[in-house]
């Protein structure tokens, strides 16, 4: 927190004097139009003219452009990468918006009005006044099996989604179960098949939520969205139903049994620590006194 406070008061926040949130207003209008369209057609990938951003592709350029287009000066921004607020990607995007938009930032999920995320949905339930922005590497769920964009667009148009099940079939044939553990395909409102970005399939049930969810793919130049309370069904087979799985452990730090866990190797003897991937969720639980079996002072240092 102290780190963030310092940056906020740094002299170069005046970058927002050039234009609020880096992008020029025409670009933001273009992106907002794409966002509105994507909200009107849940799950449909809307093409947009993705801009060059001052960060490489794969670092969240799509999510950053969507965030820039929806940010207002009154917003409070939270950025997470794999659930954590303190990883390089999350820190640099948060600083980017502090500098270019001068908005308030937070690590507390409940306090944020806009949350940009890579590969996770926060554990805490989101509200109607919140927006969740996803960074998406490959927006097309059919891409791995059908390389032609012309053909995949046709397949979406005509709802020819048999191919999606071929992928799941291959999983079961090779691994005895649906081995797809992240970027697990879903069907939106019984119409479009959508890639929920590489979130773990544990998060799939949370896709039906009160907050607005926006997905931005910078390199692939696509935006898609889930309006609040949209029906989102994970694809499966009758005899191999969808299962939202996670590591079968409680969190070593806060003892939570309902959160998605990261596995950490802690020594050279193969010692492992399972801990919440959502750092804010874990810290908040620890702050009110929850303790896991590994919550010793030394391990806290490692984490």
């Amino acid at each position: 927190m102290t780190q963030i406070e310092q940056d906020k008061n740094a002299p170069d926040t005046v970058m927002s004097d050039y234009n609020f949130a880096y992008l020029d207003e025409q670009t933001k209008r273009m992106i907002r139009r794409a966002i509105l369209k994507s909200l009107a057609i849940p799950g449909y990938q809307v093409p947009f003219a993705s801009r060059e951003m001052p960060m490489p592709y794969g670092w969240g350029t799509g999510g950053v452009q969507v965030s820039a287009a929806v940010l207002t000066p009154d917003d409070t921004l939270k950025v997470i990468d794999q659930g954590a607020d303190d990883t390089t990607n999350a820190v640099s995007i948060r600083r980017f918006f502090e500098k270019t938009a001068g908005v308030a930032v937070t690590e507390a999920t409940a306090e944020a009005s806009i949350i940009q995320t890579r590969h996770r949905i926060p554990e805490a339930e989101l509200r109607e006044d919140q927006v969740l922005v996803y960074q998406v590497p490959i927006p097309e769920p059919l891409r791995f099996l059908e390389p032609s964009e012309v053909e995949t667009r046709k397949m979406h148009e005509l709802e020819e989604y048999g191919l999606m099940h071929v992928k799941l079939y291959e999983d079961i044939a090779q691994h005895g179960a649906i081995a797809t553990a992240y970027a697990y395909p879903v069907k939106v409102e019984g119409r479009y098949v959508m890639d929920p970005s590489p979130i773990p399939k544990f998060d799939n049930p949370k896709l039906e939520m009160a907050a607005i969810q926006l997905f931005g793919a910078g390199r692939e130049q696509r935006i898609y969205a889930l309006p609040p309370h949209t029906q989102v069904v994970s694809l499966d087979f009758e005899d191999y139903p969808f299962e939202a799985s996670k590591a079968d452990h409680p969190c070593g730090l806060c003892g939570a049994e309902d959160s998605y866990l990261d596995e950490l190797i802690v020594d050279d003897e193969g010692g492992r620590l399972f801990m919440c991937s959502d750092t804010d969720y874990c810290a908040a639980r620890q702050a009110v006194g929850h303790r896991g079996s590994d919550a010793s002072p030394t391990l806290e240092g490692v984490a």
């Binding site: 020819e160 048999g162 191919l163 099940h165 071929v166 079939y169 079961i172 087979f237 009758e238 005899d239 191999y240």
Partner: peptide, 11 residues
């Protein structure tokens, strides 16, 4: 594939 394309959902 063709079976799944016409709606077969039992692996």
């Amino acid at each position: 594939e063709r079976l799944m394309a016409v709606g077969a959902r039992h692996y």
